[in-house]
Write a protein that binds this DNA or RNA. Structure first.
Length: 424
RNA sequence: GCACAGGUGGGUGAGUGGUUAAAGCCAACAGACUGUAAAUCUGUCCCUCCUAGCGAGGUACGAAGGUUCGAAUCCUUCCCUGUGCA
């Protein structure tokens, strides 16, 4: 078994559940911080654990270019490499097919990319993208897809969606034939336990239940070098399929049906948040969810604002990821219970209050807005660290409220329950 | 005191007779950011007025005079700064 998913509470269309992965349990609905280059920019992994991050996202394209899949594999796979004991999901590089628009060429066989780092040419196919992801060793990996641009006419959307379906089948075929090659498959490749530390314990486990509320994982005793990765003998990765179809509800349905027919342990809704109006996003999400199996995790890729992730969770989405909290933080935009705060503004220069009076995160407990504004204005790296810490805390806290709310069955008061404080 | 080199908008620094209210960078101010080519990007950034525009006036390149149709740019004197020599 690779992953298991249990829905154990519902509130309207929303569901709360548990996703059991080889690297611990993930409570859903979950927000997954993005750590593209094997790092959630500016936050160390142990702090992410303390924040309660249960699963991280990494990016195949970036890691393939640097440091290279073999390097990561040799250092214990992504888990060992970045010393992250909990779950990881890697994106296939499909999104880069979209975002690196200027530097790519798509054919039936695959995509030719020009590296944004040195201009070198690389050819990605469903097979190679899957192979790379197997090498990286994330718990959940994604089929190689084409994220349809917006706007796109029906013909283009249909062609793109069908290409993604064919690629999904190829990704799965390759995966089934090669999944045993993952870095931590079986006993032979279990990370690299720290020398002289044979009793290094496996940390999160399904039975023990990953402690997600701040307890240290005991990943690596202090002063012990070497990546000690939790072992998960006999466990394998899981490959998720991705639904495309642009803004066309029929094509979304067809994409869902054909992707489900191929068969995956989880399904993602891709191709959204690419510039379309927010109402359309909601509409497409809602319509697409109807065609996804209720017993499989549903992952909405690339969203959203705090309000949006709550809304999508209420529609029945189980997993979401977004660069917004981390990137916006680095750019001085902070999400709070009282709305967005652009901490760079002059009005905060002498503000001695906390960033968010209703937030219990380490940043809000300790620092003033005036100080945060100063750090940002002074271009201090700590500004990025603290800002990211807060935004991530806010997102994670929001999702905790969502889960709690669902478990209480507060379907009618779902949103108000989550936004029990002044709404942004 | 003498000899060089300089004095440009909040800072720095281009510009050496005419699309120059004056490049670029920084600062300042505002905005954007949604499966991360992002510690990034965009806009504003002398004053006043309005019909808000590649609009109208005004002020501005140390100071004062001068040459010229026209000067930040050329000339004169003065003031100031740096360096060297006394």
């Amino acid at each position: 078994m690779s992953i298991r998913f249990h829905v154990d509470a519902r509130a309207g269309a929303a569901r709360a559940g548990r996703l059991l992965t080889p690297h611990g349990e993930v409570e859903t609905p979950v927000f997954m911080p993005v750590g593209t280059a094997a790092t959630v920019k500016s936050v160390p992994q142990d702090v992410l654990e303390e924040l309660g991050v249960q699963i991280l996202l990494g990016n195949t394209y970036h890691l393939y270019l640097r440091p290279g899949v073999e390097t990561v594999r040799n250092l214990g796979g992504l888990h060992g490499f970045m010393a992250w004991p909990r779950a990881i999901l890697t994106d296939s590089g499909g999104f880069q097919v979209f975002s690196l628009n200027e530097l790519r060429k798509v054919t039936e066989e695959g995509v030719t990319f020009r590296s944004h780092l040195d201009g070198s040419s690389h050819f990605f196919t469903p097979e190679s993208a899957t192979q790379a992801q197997i090498g990286l060793g994330a718990d959940i990996i994604m089929a190689f897809d084409e994220c349809t641009e917006y706007p796109a006419d029906r013909a283009r959307t249909k062609a793109s969606m069908e290409l993604t379906v064919r690629w999904a089948a190829r990704s799965k075929k390759y995966f089934e034939e090669h999944k045993h090659e993952m870095p931590w498959a079986g006993d032979a490749h279990v990370g690299t336990a720290a020398p002289g530390c044979p009793e290094e314990r496996s940390s999160p486990s399904v039975e023990g239940g990953a402690r997600l509320d701040g307890e240290k994982s005991g990943l690596r005793p202090e002063g012990q070098p070497g990546a000690a990765v939790p072992t998960w003998t006999g466990k394998t990765q899981s490959l998720f399929g991705i639904i495309q179809g642009g803004m066309d509800l029929e094509l979304r349905k067809e994409s869902a049906e054909r992707t489900i027919e191929i068969g995956f342990p989880g399904y993602a809704i891709g191709g959204l948040s690419v510039g379309e109006p927010r109402e359309r996003t909601r509409e497409v999400v809602q319509a697409t969810l109807e065609h996804l199996p209720a017993d499989k995790p549903r992952y909405l890729m690339g969203v959203g604002t705090p309000e949006e992730i709550v809304e999508y969770a209420s529609l029945g989405v189980d997993m979401m990821d977004c660069v917004l909290p981390t990137r916006a933080a680095r750019h001085g935009l902070l999400f709070t219970s009282e709305g967005k705060v652009s901490i760079k503004q002059a009005r905060y220069t002498r503000d001695e209050g906390p960033l968010d009076p209703n937030c219990g995160c380490r940043v809000c407990r300790r620092y003033s807005r005036g100080y945060l504004r100063h750090l940002y204005a002074s271009n201090e790296v700590l500004a990025q660290v603290l800002n990211t810490l807060h935004n991530l805390s806010f997102y994670l806290d929001t999702m905790r409220r969502v889960r709690h709310s669902i478990r209480l069955g507060e379907e009618s008061r779902f949103l108000s329950s989550v936004w029990s404080r002044p709404k942004p």
